[in-house]
Design a protein around this nucleic acid. Sequence first.
DNA 1: GCAAGAAAGTTTACACTGTTAACATGACTT
DNA 2: AAGTCATGTTAACAGTGTAAACTTTCTTGC
Lengths: 195, 195
Amino acid sequence: MRKLARSLGVTAPALYRHYESREKVLHEVVGEAYRTFAQYLYGALEGQSPEERFSMTGRAYLRYALEHPQYYEVLHISPALAGLEELPEEVSAQACAAGQFLVDRVREAIDAGILKQGDAEAVAKTIWAHSHGLVSIYHRGLLRMTEAEFRRFFLESSWQLMWGIGSDEFVRSRDLEAKEAALREVGIEAGVAGE
Amino acid sequence: MRKLARSLGVTAPALYRHYESREKVLHEVVGEAYRTFAQYLYGALEGQSPEERFSMTGRAYLRYALEHPQYYEVLHISPALAGLEELPEEVSAQACAAGQFLVDRVREAIDAGILKQGDAEAVAKTIWAHSHGLVSIYHRGLLRMTEAEFRRFFLESSWQLMWGIGSDEFVRSRDLEAKEAALREVGIEAGVAGE
DNA sequence: GCAAGAAAGTTTACACTGTTAACATGACTT
DNA sequence: AAGTCATGTTAACAGTGTAAACTTTCTTGC
């Protein structure tokens, strides 16, 4: 708190005029991280078809994770480790909303015949876990990749999962050709972003 | 440190006779978490075939995550958040060793025709991310499942991934029948463990 | 235009933290 | 028996989150 106050050009107790406690400040940060996350996700609603909204959701997730690594980490901190008792209900509600958003995109994709028929919630959890796991180990530097390499790997790994959860027709329609094209596209994007 | 000392029936400065600093104590805990993890993993070498060793590795990972949730969390803490500068090289070496173990099991499975031909490291990373992601969101209570449900879901979700990374022959040989049998088995195991 | 009060800051103080220095004590070595 | 070493103690220091009391500055109603 003292360090934060100094960086604001103020003494520590002044902060308590605006926030009840250190805990409340941290809650605010977590809330901001969730709001930003929601903005990224909701951008996927611009997609014109279930398939586009589904894939845009994945891309939005990746963009958020790479453009806001600290927010991303905040989203996944165990409250106990940050010295917090528990997150306020308002915040965990945002987590649920984000989860529901993904479930909705999955259900839409199932109905459109892109994903196999089945439990949308379970599939959403699988996708979520896979994506989060990738980002999590990348952020800890355990993947030993540049960001561009990771973007490519994220897509490649997601395709492997897609071959398990995608409908037979969809998987067949996306042969190696399509996959390679997508990889090239990401490679170009990553190259431009790296300039 | 004071709390730890009290729980040992000793005053705080006594700890400094055995550990240079709080940081060194935490390093020790992380080291212990890794050693325990390694024991679980290496148990999978008892398997009699590549397939058995591969699947035992997955089960060992899940058992470790569920039987030692705090150690598991320790393994995935960002050092900065725990107030640590950086992990000692000895510890990150253990992380690499665990990663290599999984790569070896994957390579073996590829050679045995269980997994699709391809980059073993990439496949290993995909499996790792998927498993870690599942455990990570389960441990934070975001899955809203009992442990028994989670064990079942973990297996189910892993099968979805297997359909993407498994070889065509292997996937065909494991039809729904086999999958259901495996689910039943885990259900029984979980039931027994829950008594 | 000015007193009243709210908003936002300050200083001081307290209990708690990791850590060090100085000192005590019991157990081995020689 | 003397000396050293391992292991503990107490007292103290700087740094932390936070509360209380006091000051300043801005807004607002008459």
